[in-house]
Nucleic acid binder design. Structure first.
Lengths: 344, 344
DNA sequence: ATGCTTGGTTGGATCGTTCCAGGCATGACC
DNA sequence: GGTCATGCCTGGAACGATCCAACCAAGCAT
């Protein structure tokens, strides 16, 4: 078979090219790549030299076609939120891409169509474009998990299954955010605060209730009262600020623990307006260690989620799930840390 | 509510399955999908019904193998920067994913290995995993553009080619950030400021010099002096703050135009420390309209880059580049806008 | 010597799609 | 009636990898 050597955009070398150069068959080259220990030492060396010389890399499409595995992982991303401090995705995505590269996977992004949130999953699944999904918004009622399960599509979740745990047959990784709120609250108690207010999300947010429980646990453990000190609002700066107004006027707290950096910024806005100095007159903590928390004067104390660790665990779970035989381990719960800055 | 479709892992239907059901040949089904106008009306309808019934979608691996096109676009992402306000990526990536979906492309992410920044490109290219790349950091000396060109790999750049323009044979999209700085400066001049300082990046940053030129143009056009009012530092909060100290003490400006939100936050930090009120005592503008600018009290005026528009143009350029014949249009320059908030 | 293992290698078939050359009606034209 | 063009459809052959059954020496036991 004579190949045209002088081709303009030089077609990448194939298995057959390497085989010819090394003087072996295609299959032997394939083994050299996938099962090196099947070859005799000298043959292996010869093949590897040929691979090196030609700069050969297996064609992904051909390999996927044959092995029915694309080594791609689908990740759905939500629109960037404006006017909030919730920008976890940047850090998370980077960690995920980095970790999955080491495991031989790439991350394929997609977005949802407003009318049909499952369409993106369906497309990728039916065209066998990805091997698995990572889902992130596991709030109650998110149809993705159930739908993927019914389709027998492999997926791992960042976020525990809030529904009946017994139904959840997928691996998950989550962060113990009750512990995060508790960490922040105890920190404030240590600083001598006794009237510590909570600003969290509305009651239908299980994650919000979870975080709130960390605050109330820390308070009760220290014998401090919580009545009149909790507020539950939308996750916006304006509502955080409104909650601050109400709490300051009615309960006179000396510190605020917030369920998000966004809400904490609401507090800072009101303090700014009143001429109160955060960290001196009133203490504030946020949640997520966003860039906002890191850069706002004088620096917002915030709970930091170990996203890099989460990525590692997610990829580990993914490898188990896609292994042969598939292995589904128990859920993994990670501990957040507190980054102390000048607002406390 | 719950529908149980007791099915085996059910291999996805293939072209042949559809063909059999519709009573035509494989090729006819393929035509129905790719060249519908080649079929007689009734045949087309019959095939489409069969496709619908089976939920058929072409297998991506097989299609890529045959057509030598993966419909994937590679995008290299940099680590999320801590302690800065530079989080453009979130918005940009989302816009890009959204736009390219409409054009039939997906975004594949990868990261660089520290020792070899080109390794990621090389891998994806040699395994024919992606059709093209989008590169974002076109600072002078970034080897990616030149390397990709030498490999004849299709790519479009977000950022103009700073090197010799005549060498650049690739499409690019950029944002006229000199105009952005000019916008911010003129805005301050309109507000009555005359002593307007510039805090930008060090001289070896061409982008920084570009932005600086917008400031000086606006100043000179209005007959205002610039001597002693410019400072060039690293892009960190600490250096922004240090520059503020020096400028306030030596040149007594009443306003600061900054090359980034990070630097602007440095200014706010110093104002905070001195008890000066941004927007009342001293005006400040940033660059990027980051979440930090949006949420910091009392709200930082900032230049907003039209990232969504940029994504649209990039994908348009990509389609041209991957078209047959390939088309490389002229570079596209987009205009930023100014988001006015309370610091001015 | 014959048969049997074992490690190393081989060529053919296959994954699901699209490209290509051709087939077969139908109808138009001379 | 024969030729040719046209429109619609078909079957075989690729794309480049891996799976599979078979092959072939060499080594060992019978």
């Amino acid at each position: 078979m004579s190949r045209f050597v002088a081709r303009m955009p030089a077609a990448p070398p194939t298995l057959a090219d390497v085989a010819e150069l090394a003087g072996v068959s295609r299959q032997t080259v394939s083994n050299a790549v996938n099962n090196p220990d099947l070859l005799r030492e000298d043959t292996l060396a010869r093949v590897q030299a040929a691979i090196e010389q030609l700069g050969y890399q297996p064609n992904r499409a051909a390999r996927s076609l044959r092995t029915r595995a694309s080594h791609l992982i689908g990740l759905k991303i939500a629109p960037a939120q404006e006017n909030t401090a919730n920008a976890l995705m940047d850090r998370f995505i980077h960690a995920l891409v980095d970790t999955s590269r080491e495991a031989g996977y790439h991350i394929l992004l997609f977005t949802g169509e407003p009318e049909d949130p499952l369409a993106g999953y369906d497309d990728l699944l039916r065209s066998t474009a990805v091997d698995a999904f990572i889902i992130t918004d596991t709030y109650l009622g998110n149809p993705a998990a159930g739908w993927l399960r019914s389709r027998r599509a492999p997926f791992v979740a960042f976020g525990r299954p809030w529904e009946d745990e017994s139904v959840a047959t997928h691996p998950w990784v989550d962060i113990d955010s009750a512990a995060g709120a508790e960490l922040a609250t105890r920190h404030l108690i240590e600083r001598g605060h006794t009237r510590i207010a909570w600003i969290g999300w509305r009651k239908d947010s299980l994650l919000g209730e979870e975080r709130r429980s960390g605050w109330s646990r820390a308070m009760h453990d220290s014998g401090l009262a919580t009545t009149g000190l909790a507020s539950r609002v939308e996750d916006t700066i304006a509502s955080g600020r409104a909650a601050t107004v109400a709490l300051l006027d009615e309960a006179a707290p000396t510190a605020f623990v917030c369920a998000s950096d966004t809400l904490a910024m609401g507090v800072l806005h009101e303090l700014y307006e009143r001429g109160l100095r955060p960290g001196h007159d009133v203490a504030v903590t946020g949640f997520d260690d966003s860039q906002v928390a890191q850069t706002v004067p004088p620096g917002l104390t915030s709970v930091r989620q170990p996203l890099e660790e989460a990525a590692v665990e997610l990829v580990k779970a993914l490898e188990g799930l896609l292994g042969n035989p598939p292995y589904v381990g128990p859920g993994v719960m990670l501990q957040p840390t507190l980054v102390v800055r000048s607002t406390t």
